[in-house]
Design a protein around this nucleic acid. Structure first.
Lengths: 350, 350
DNA sequence: AGCGGCTGAGAGACCGATCTCACACTTCAT
DNA sequence: ATGAAGTGTGAGATCGGTCTCTCAGCCGCT
């Protein structure tokens, strides 16, 4: 494919050697003058600085990295950079890293385990200082375990991996879902549908578990025909919603496990002529722009998105600096934001 | 701040030297066996491969990069990774790059020229193979000119820079805006408001120019009180909209230059009790999820978002492979998607 | 037999920055 | 005066992989 062709002629960059020659000192002295370590005479230092300035010396990060065994780069592997949640987190990580003079390399796994493995191999080969990963699967995690074993600083976000000995920053998915379903039950709903992602993503599973626990506690059965499986895209969610609501005895409420699915559900309900909340009460996991845009606005389980990136970065930088306290697992609470998409249902009808 | 602490102990990686020793061949032969170049005997090749496999040899990209003078990395500097437009482009670039075994380093300029300069310096020091940049300013572009001069492959997206000798991929901002305003004028509108970004971003300027040209062609004056300046955020756009529409003789139509501003305008109009399109006709630049979500849906000037990333990547890879044809400037046409947010206004009223 | 051409493989240079080490020179205390 | 401690500098090793150069066999051809 687009493989290496003849190397493009890039003007050769200025090296310490050039600086040293211009300043008429040795490479070692020039390096000392530029990095301010060891003993350097005033005169030599001045000449070195001046020559570097004049020639436009910038240093070669690659050579430095080779010498030091590490690149000033942190890798971030989100499930999907187009998901606003990850875009926000990426932005926050980037901003937090900038202060410590690291660059951020973002490589989306597209929720594919295989792709994730390849990307991590890549990042490992680049000798990045550390990685922040949203693991695509709860299944095979030997590639992550290996990183931990080899001492590569690693922080998991959004999705935790039971038994993985590394820091993680997540939210209380189970509790958030439980609270949402609780609200629906308290409003008299008995036939509460769920659209979730069958993939092995931990968050989806936990949100489903919260749903199931809430039902169980209310003595309600978990019925297969109330649960639809969908990929996390608007289109698939539309199909899933239509499947759920075109049966007789249709659900009176719907819980969706992420914002793309909530969007799909809204579109599908509208196309079926079902009004929220008159015909269907709706709660979505994850707050998003659209939620305040509909009429009425959508009740959601909100995550503290703005805290995840900064905290994960802070933890990672501590690890990079050599901290070896035991793995920390931070789990943020979620917040149920009641807007207008949940209506009381009278018991006779339910 | 979080500066280098004691280097964390990372298990030393396997090197060619280790492989060579294990396979009982020289480093050079081992390297040949692993990379399949030059003359290698079958036996030596087999032993090399086997030893590499057994030891888990992965190669050191940094050392390779140092030798070859280039990192297999492409830099991407969007104005803001949280903007869905750039998130989409980033995703597409990433996907396109993966096929040519490059990684993507994303560093958002946050629309700050100073930050952009710093980031480019950084990327340059990392010896990335090339860069894709959405320049934050039309003003001082010496840092970009220098890259071009030094032969670093560079592709500009979204915003072009007149006189810059490098490839660019943009859309017809002026034409798109002109067409939109034309539609409003054809529907009888005479007081057409504009909310735009005063920054030195080229796109914003061009969209404003399209607006002005359309007015001029219809013999309508460009009135200051019809033009509001706002930063590109939902909050600022809300303020700007309220300013525009709380005057007597309020505008009958509004044109917003990006999707965040369109969102803000919608929110503001709703809060002021003005219905779209009954009281105000609205057209936004850049299509977005919300636009099909409102009732009625919003008419927009759509850009071919999905084509920008792949094309920019293709151009960049060609440059990386040494193409030195003259700079190519691709400008995609925009497409006016008529939905329901433009109403006819009767001439007596306008 | 002798020579050119090919295959196979090792030694060592090299990329650029950093760091250790050795050496020279100064200053100060004994 | 002499050694010790402190200061300034350069030579060279090092990081890991790649690549050139050299050399040794081996083939076939004249």
């Amino acid at each position: 494919m687009a493989e290496d062709g003849p190397p493009r002629a890039v003007k050769r960059a200025v090296t310490v050697k050039d600086v040293a020659a211009a300043a008429q000192v040795s490479r070692a002295t020039a390096a000392r003058a530029l990095n301010g370590y060891g003993y350097v005479g005033d005169e030599a230092a001045r000449r070195g600085q001046e020559a570097a300035e004049r020639l436009g010396y910038r240093g070669n990060r690659i050579a430095q990295a080779l010498r030091q065994g590490q690149m000033p780069i942190v890798g971030f592997v989100p499930g999907d950079i187009q998901n606003p949640f990850f875009a926000r987190v990426a932005h926050d990580i980037d901003a937090a890293l900038r202060r410590s003079r690291h660059s951020l390399l973002i490589a989306s796994s597209d929720e594919s385990l295989v792709q994730e493995q390849g990307l991590l191999d890549n990042l490992r080969a680049l000798n990045v200082r550390g990685m922040i990963v949203a693991p695509a699967s709860e299944g095979d995690n030997r590639h992550l375990a290996r990183l931990v074993r080899e001492g590569v600083p690693l922080v998991l976000i959004d999705r935790e991996l039971p038994g993985m000995e590394c820091d993680s920053v997540t939210v209380d998915n189970e509790g958030g879902a439980h609270e949402a379903i609780g609200l629906l039950i308290a409003n008299g709903h008995r036939r509460i549908a769920l659209i979730h992602d069958a993939s092995r993503i931990a968050t989806a599973r936990q949100r489903r578990e919260g749903y199931l626990r809430a039902l169980a506690e209310a003595g309600l059965p978990a019925e297969d025909r109330l649960i639809a499986v969908s990929q996390s895209t608007v289109e698939h969610a539309i199909d899933a919603t239509i499947r759920l609501f075109s049966r007789p005895e249709r659900p009176t409420a719907l819980f969706t496990v992420d914002s793309l699915m909530t969007t799909g559900a809204l579109l599908a309900l509208r196309s079926m002529g079902l009004a929220v909340p008159r015909d269907v009460s709706l709660i979505g996991f994850d707050d998003f722009d659209l939620a305040t845009f509909t009429d009425p606005q959508i009740t959601v389980v909100a995550q503290p998105v703005g805290q995840i990136g900064p905290l994960a970065t802070k933890m990672l930088l501590e690890r990079i600096q050599g901290s070896d306290e035991p793995a920390r697992h931070v789990r943020f609470p979620t917040r149920l934001i009641a807007r207008g998409s949940v209506a009381r249902v009278d018991f006779g009808r339910a």
